[in-house]
Amino acid sequence: MRLPALSCLAAAFLAFSTAAGAAEPLSVVEQSIVPVTAWGGTPADASKARRHTISQITLHHQGEPFKPGTDAQAYLRRLQSWSRVTKGWLDIPYHYVIDLDGRTYGARDIAFAGDTNTDYDPAGHALIEVVGNFEEVEPNQQQLDAVVNLMAMLAAKYKVSIDDIRSHRDHSDKTVCPGANLYRYVKEDYFRHKVALRLAGEQAGKHR
Rank of each mutant, 00 (worst) to 15 (best):
E30K: 03
S172C: 11
A44M: 12
R103T: 12
A38T: 02
G132N: 08
A46M: 12
L79P: 01
P35R: 12
V130N: 02
E188I: 05
H193G: 02
H171P: 00
G114W: 07
P93Y: 09
W89P: 01
V28C: 07
R208T: 04
T104N: 03
P65C: 09
K157Y: 02
Q62A: 13
V160F: 04
S167C: 14
W89R: 01
D164H: 03
S161Y: 02
Q143H: 03
G21S: 12
L14H: 01
T70D: 13
R208Q: 10
L197T: 03
L79D: 10
K206H: 11
E135S: 05
Y158K: 01
T53W: 06
V28K: 05
I162P: 00
V97S: 13
L9A: 09
D173V: 10
S55C: 12
Y96K: 13
E129Q: 05
Y185P: 01
H171T: 03
I162K: 00
M151P: 00
S32W: 01
I54N: 04
P4G: 11
L79R: 12
D101Y: 03
K67E: 14
I57R: 06
H60T: 04
Q80E: 15
R50G: 07
Q56I: 08
L26M: 10
G88E: 14
Q143A: 02
